[in-house]
Write a protein that binds this DNA or RNA. Structure first.
Lengths: 139, 139
DNA sequence: CTCTGTGCAAAATATTTGCAGGCTC
DNA sequence: GAGCCTGCAAATATTTTGCACAGAG
């Protein structure tokens, strides 16, 4: 595992330092997007908080990780897998998260560009659904 | 204007206090989503920061305002107009914002519910595009 | 009059910046 | 060896909480 993280870092053009390998491994193992605090906790003091911030930002720029915003008061990051362009459904009551894939956003992006006349390119997009999970519905 | 804000507050089931009328007016006049600081500045000291936080949250619960997240490090709010379900295109370089409308999300929501088996209801959604505006493309 | 809303102070949380030393390439 | 990366300290920004008083209904 560690060695593959190392290779991915190099392929992405980043220096393969110990903190970066550790953080990338944590991201890859996570079932759901992680906050800076989440990452730090899972590394139990092995990496400084500031480094987590800087590393996640570097991963984002390098395309290794994506930024997720679920309106929880802090940013989340997740490993960018092959099955890219997946999104989340978040329970507004308990914050449970599930994924869904196959968002066909190209028509929407074209429509957005047609209306937003001051723009020339769409680079990325965010799409999140907020609802109630079955447990919270029952309550 | 002020009187209409007052009526809207009552209709939404909220007490029509001075800070709320002022904040609602500011939101309605804004061309784009505002942060807590934006709102506070436009009220030049007439309302406390904490009240702005609490009021915007109350508006959100009452359906008067919507929460927008453009990955800028803080939350934005905008008045919920009739032309609801509109979204934004944000320039990743200069943060310029434009709107677009007519996102046909029902099929996507159905697809999300089919895949997210632990969920029973979709209440709302967020969809934002990030790209380059023509000015920043030229640079 | 009752109960919610507000302002003020302070705490808690999240994020950024500066700098000296360490490690990758 | 050069230059990027890290840890530590501290500054800055954002959001939340507690409480006494004010104002809406």
């Amino acid at each position: 595992m560690t060695s593959s993280a190392l290779a991915e870092l190099k392929k992405a053009g980043l220096r393969a330092t110990r903190p970066r390998v550790l953080i990338l491994d944590v991201l890859k193992k996570a079932a759901y997007p992680l906050s800076v605090q989440d990452v730090k906790k899972r590394l139990q003091g092995k990496v400084d908080t500031v480094t987590v911030y800087r590393t996640l930002e570097a991963f984002k720029l390098a395309g290794l990780a994506g930024h997720v915003d679920l309106q929880l008061g802090h940013s989340l990051y997740e490993f960018t897998e092959e099955k890219r362009d997946h999104h989340h459904v978040v329970c507004v009551s308990c914050n449970r998260i599930e994924d869904f894939t196959g968002c066909d956003y190209q028509p929407l992006a074209r429509q957005a560009l047609k209306q937003a006349t001051g723009f020339s390119t769409i680079i990325t997009h965010s799409l999140e659904f907020f609802g109630l999970c079955t447990q919270c519905t029952a309550k």
